[in-house]
Amino acid sequence: MTTPRFTTPLPTFDPRSIPVIGVDTHLSGVPAQELTPQALRQRFRHPPVWTPEHSVEKRFSNREPALAAVLLPLVMRDELTLLLTERAGNMSTHSGQIALPGGKTDDTDHDAVDTALREAHEEIGLTREHVEVLGILPTYVTGTAFIITPVVALVRPGFALQPSPSEVADIFEVPLRYLMDPSNHQRHEFEFDGVLRQWLSMPYTGDEGMDAKERYIWGATAGMLRNLYRFLSA
């Protein structure tokens, strides 16, 4: 994603250090039968009446709003997984954070889908012939004034990824069932510059034995995933 220059400071803190104020164990996860390629195709063809839970963050910056799009790439393995990235550590903002492939809209992009597919190819080398776009979710406005359209897609295995070293430090997959289970959704609050801000986190540690690494999914990425949960559970 193209990173802007900010005229007001962004908070610098370790989100892992902010206490958890709640976990939504009272909500049911999306049933396994609803997390299949065919079920998702059907859901997007005939969407339910629903309301996104997260849509506009409190702003950190007075920069002009900018359109952007991200891809939610659901890989069709034995069970669906979501492809995520870890941003490079030398990025000027949000370095090292977990993100969805995507970025700012170019003048040559036809629409949000075109932006998401182009950026996914530029960032991680995911080619369009492996991608089946299902649909879009409502826009999500970040505290840095990006108006993001999330594009949900199925990805056929057999792709060869090539991460852009200037943008991406790592690429990994998380089971969709884990992300669509609210018992894995943690709530946080943090005051910055006199403003109380709230967000979700979805920490995930894969089955990698002694080398298991926690992937701390939070902020805008977690907010858009929470909206996907609301859409699939409506």
Score class of each variant (00 low, 15 high):
116 A>D: 06
179 L>F: 11
51 T>W: 07
2 T>W: 10
67 L>C: 04
116 A>W: 01
100 L>N: 08
234 A>E: 01
227 N>Q: 11
67 L>D: 05
130 H>W: 14
194 G>F: 13
189 E>R: 15
132 E>R: 08
58 K>S: 08
159 F>V: 05
178 Y>F: 15
104 K>S: 10
14 D>C: 08
96 G>P: 12
61 S>P: 05
180 M>F: 10
59 R>G: 05
56 V>E: 13
219 G>D: 04
67 L>V: 03
104 K>W: 07
141 V>N: 06
166 S>T: 13
75 V>L: 05
61 S>C: 08
183 S>Y: 04
7 T>C: 09
100 L>Q: 11
188 H>T: 06
63 R>N: 07
195 V>K: 11
14 D>A: 14
155 V>T: 14
230 R>D: 03
153 A>D: 07
35 L>M: 14
133 V>S: 13
31 P>G: 04
74 L>E: 01
94 H>P: 00
157 P>W: 06
75 V>E: 12
10 L>T: 03
205 T>G: 06
232 L>V: 00
99 A>N: 12
98 I>C: 08
128 R>W: 15
123 E>L: 10
211 D>G: 10
197 R>T: 11
127 T>H: 15
116 A>N: 06
174 V>P: 03
71 L>S: 00
20 V>S: 12
17 S>N: 08
135 G>R: 01
135 G>S: 11
147 I>Y: 04
159 F>Y: 15
154 L>Y: 10
34 E>S: 00
60 F>G: 01
176 L>M: 13
203 P>R: 00
129 E>K: 14
225 L>V: 14
22 G>D: 05
69 A>N: 02
52 P>T: 09
47 P>L: 02
135 G>C: 07
78 D>W: 00
12 T>E: 13
24 D>C: 06
129 E>M: 14
95 S>G: 08
34 E>R: 02
152 V>T: 01
53 E>T: 13
15 P>V: 01
182 P>C: 05
147 I>E: 06
122 E>I: 05
61 S>M: 07
210 M>I: 10
182 P>K: 08
7 T>V: 11
39 A>T: 09
62 N>Y: 09
142 T>G: 03
119 E>F: 04
149 T>S: 04
3 T>Y: 09
175 P>R: 06
59 R>E: 14
107 D>R: 12
128 R>V: 15
214 E>Q: 12
203 P>E: 08
5 R>I: 12
216 Y>A: 00
145 A>W: 05
183 S>C: 14
162 Q>E: 15
106 D>F: 10
183 S>T: 15
141 V>A: 03
151 V>I: 04
93 T>V: 09
60 F>E: 02
152 V>W: 01
71 L>D: 04
85 T>D: 06
121 H>C: 13
108 T>M: 09
141 V>M: 06
68 A>P: 00
112 A>G: 07
134 L>H: 04
148 I>P: 01
202 M>Q: 12
210 M>W: 00
59 R>S: 11
198 Q>M: 13
151 V>M: 01
17 S>M: 08
132 E>F: 12
128 R>T: 15
82 L>K: 04
13 F>V: 13
31 P>Q: 10
40 L>F: 12
229 Y>K: 04
126 L>W: 02
105 T>C: 00
106 D>M: 13
109 D>Q: 03
30 V>R: 01
88 A>L: 09
117 L>F: 02
202 M>E: 07
223 G>L: 05
45 R>F: 13
41 R>V: 14
180 M>E: 06
212 A>Q: 11
